[in-house]
């Protein structure tokens, strides 16, 4: 993102968000992520429009700055995966190609990859991230996590993401696929505690919920700026005392 073209004052702009399957893919309080985006826009005088696209509904690839997909129960995730391929994958690819932000959390992250394999069943994903997820034997990966993200241009120096992971699937990244970050504490993509999430341009997937954005408001601001084509520094700062304590509590819970 070039600084010279970034407008300085965001006020008067509107962030248009589309939540995919908010009625089904919402199991880990995904609503919290959307509320945080909405409030932090409103406090800055940035407009906020939230739309939804669920089963059987078409997706407008041009109409939104940010697409969000959360996690769901296995049964619901299966229904959504079929629908995603049938009626929304093409629009998401088009949106990704024009650099719209696409954020997938937990089940949503898995669906942004190539496939999710449960035993003999293989669920196809959108393929925006070069990775596959396999439900292997062994316990679910559950606990507090902290990661050091990379590949987020303009992120504050030393910024950390903290959250909670709870997934049965192990996600394996292709060698050319960048992770979202290095695991400081926690289990990460495949349970080995090395890397977490994946990022390709403005398409981001992560297992971190809890929810993610209330615990890491710097990342909410990064997403807002990126989705509006602004520099992260272009957003006026907010009174974030409570948010700083929330971030610190999540880091403490993860043992950082």
């Amino acid at each position: 993102m070039s600084e010279s073209t970034a407008p300085a004052a965001p006020s008067g702009r509107t962030l248009r968000v589309c939540a995919l399957y908010p009625d089904l893919m919402n199991i880990y309080a995904d609503r919290g992520n959307l509320i945080v985006l909405e409030r932090r826009c409103a406090w800055r005088g940035i407009g906020f429009e939230l739309s939804a696209s669920s089963l059987g509904e078409r997706l407008d690839s041009e109409g939104y700055d940010l697409f969000y997909i959360g996690g769901g129960q296995d049964r619901d995730q299966r229904l959504c995966a079929e629908d995603l391929l049938a009626s929304k994958a093409e629009a998401l690819r088009t949106a990704a190609a024009r650099d719209a932000v696409i954020l997938g959390v937990c089940g949503g992250y898995q669906l942004l990859g190539r496939s999710y394999t449960l035993g003999s069943e293989r669920i196809e994903g959108v393929g925006l991230l070069d990775l596959e997820t396999i439900r292997e034997d062994g316990p679910r990966l559950i606990g507090n996590v902290a990661i050091e993200p990379a590949g987020l241009p303009g992120a504050p120096a030393g910024a950390v993401l903290a959250g909670f992971e709870n997934h049965g699937g192990r996600t394996h990244l292709d060698s050319g696929q960048a992770p979202l970050g290095r695991v400081l504490r926690g289990l990460g993509n495949d349970g080995r505690g090395r890397f977490e999430g994946a990022v390709a341009g403005a398409t981001i997937g992560t297992y971190l919920h809890g929810p993610l954005l209330p615990k890491n408001v710097w990342f909410a601001d990064w997403l807002i700026a990126r989705a509006l084509g602004l520099d992260a520094q272009a957003l006026p700062p907010l009174e974030d005392e409570i948010e700083r304590q929330t971030h610190a509590a999540a880091l403490r819970a993860a043992g950082v």
Partner: peptide
């Protein structure tokens, strides 16, 4: 609290 009996994951308050 986020003890085991409360659930370690406090995300539920957002639901």
């Amino acid at each position: 609290n986020d003890q085991i009996a409360d659930g370690r994951d406090v995300s539920w308050i957002w639901d």
